[in-house]
């Protein structure tokens, strides 16, 4: 079966915008993603090395900021679980479910794997430092006109454009 075409980007943008308005109206906070990664990372480290987390400042501060039972009882963890389900259903409807390593035309699988791993690593560090990623800081920050969010947004795009030239072989 043929893959369905993607949605018109402006229509998708309006829908996403309306969803974000609803999210802020209902919950008083925006959308996010990297926070869920953090919750999972904290949980795993806590399970593997409990004494270590007790003695490390980062986990200590995390615990203070997020009082409560488990780091997984977190709004973003539920939201990202939803993202997983929603994207899967959408892929199912549009015939896009397929195990595939996607890469640029002039690159090897190994380079793509290394790139994805290192790229992910950079996002992990960057989103912690910048207090949010494209969803939590940039998009939600723009919706509430937060200075920090908008600065982060420009920095992400500026960084990507600045470094794009050096990694062009990855993609084109």
């Amino acid at each position: 079966m043929q893959e369905t075409k993607y949605m018109n980007p402006y229509l998708a943008g309006v829908l996403l915008g309306l969803l974000l308005i609803a999210t802020i109206y209902i919950t008083g906070r925006g959308l996010g993603a990297s926070g869920a990664f953090k919750s999972y990372a904290v949980t795993v480290v806590e399970k593997v090395a409990p004494t270590h987390t007790a003695n490390t400042k980062f986990y200590d501060e995390y615990g203070k900021e997020h009082p409560g039972s488990s780091p997984l009882m977190n709004w973003l963890v539920f939201e990202v679980t939803g993202v997983l389900i929603g994207a899967f259903l959408s892929g199912l409807i549009s015939n896009r479910l397929d195990f595939k390593l996607e890469k640029g035309p002039h690159t090897t699988n190994n380079i793509r794997i290394a790139g994805a791993l290192i790229g992910g690593l950079l996002w992990g560090v960057g989103s912690q430092l910048g207090r949010g990623c494209t969803s939590g800081a940039a998009l939600s920050g723009m919706a509430v006109m937060s200075t920090g969010g908008i600065i982060t947004m420009f920095a992400i795009f500026a960084g990507a454009y600045a470094f794009a030239y050096f990694f062009r072989k990855f993609w084109i």
Binding site: G120, L122, W123, G126, M153, F157, A158, G159, A160, F167
Partner: peptide, 14 residues
């Protein structure tokens, strides 16, 4: 943080 994420974007693609 933003610049690091930007670098991560072109390296990792997501």
């Amino acid at each position: 943080g933003g610049l690091i994420m930007g670098l991560g974007f072109v390296v990792g693609g997501f």
